[in-house]
Design a protein around this nucleic acid. Sequence first.
DNA 1: TCCAAGTGGCTAACGTTCTTAGCTTAAAGC
DNA 2: GCTTTAAGCTAAGAACGTTAGCCACTTGGA
Lengths: 177, 177
Amino acid sequence: MVAAGAALADEVGLGNLTMGLLAERLGVRTPSLYKHVGGQEDLNRRIAALALREAADAIGGAVQGYAGRDALEAAARSFRAFVLEHPGRYAATIGVEPSDPDDPLATAGQQLFSAFMAVLRGYEIAEPDVDHALRMLRSLFHGFATLQSAGGFQWSVDVDESFEWLIAFADRGLRTL
Amino acid sequence: MVAAGAALADEVGLGNLTMGLLAERLGVRTPSLYKHVGGQEDLNRRIAALALREAADAIGGAVQGYAGRDALEAAARSFRAFVLEHPGRYAATIGVEPSDPDDPLATAGQQLFSAFMAVLRGYEIAEPDVDHALRMLRSLFHGFATLQSAGGFQWSVDVDESFEWLIAFADRGLRTL
DNA sequence: TCCAAGTGGCTAACGTTCTTAGCTTAAAGC
DNA sequence: GCTTTAAGCTAAGAACGTTAGCCACTTGGA
């Protein structure tokens, strides 16, 4: 049922994902949903956890066997592909914070964290720079993917080309720390 | 009245900005708002346009008289300061698209565009790279600011330090194209 | 085999929020 | 001085989230 919610969010946009719509999709009356989730906020959290797990799997898988620039490319491309294919799911992850450290959300976030950390291991980065580099990569890819997904790149230059340029830029920067 | 809405959004968060709350703040009954605004979506668009204009002014002003790395630093810091001081306003800008080219939203976006473009002129960037570099800066700063504003940077490393690191990273990259 | 508990559905109902319709009053313009 | 417009109001309705309370079906143990 969380999966159905996530799929629906991808189709209609997270903002248009309503309890009634999800119930209809499942062939059920709205109040029945409350037997499975605590409410809209809970549903959002579960979708976010699912999305983070899926993203971590996708990126972790894509990176397997690569290092350095190849790993960075694989991670970046699979991340962007995930966000563009699953804009609703991904939107659900923005702004949610795990409550407990046992929260599935925290675990999933940690997985994604590790996937990007693995990419950084392919570069020779001094210990104090690692955290900053991680935040840089996250900001860069998150920013690009969400801006594109929101239609934020207006003018004509090819967006795919910009993304490849971006990867090259990050790679060069990371190699010359 | 749009200003009041923007201020309220900054206080309570864009998601909690309700027509009733805004009316109360203005000492007026809810339906009266519809004499000034087309509805919630229209209000959101106007807040977004205001925010873009303000951000462009702030960044444009901060950059005045600087070039190269100094300009980049000034732009980056004032951009982030704006987002952190006005999280509600800024959130309103995400995902809105101008309808007409005459849309105030388009004009304001163009202003912000120009402010960042001015920063890039301080670097010697080959013509075909300029657009990509602009998108890179936008992704980087937008990503960082929104992630921080959403509480997305969990662990302990100092966020301000990361941001300065980020600026240095971008500067180095732009100087060695 | 029977029955007790749990699971998952339902209808009814309420509160909040956005929005529209239609009325009224006060200022501004001819 | 009359008329138009701007800006407020009440009343009302639709959509959505949510809770309460009821019922049927499965399932696991006595």
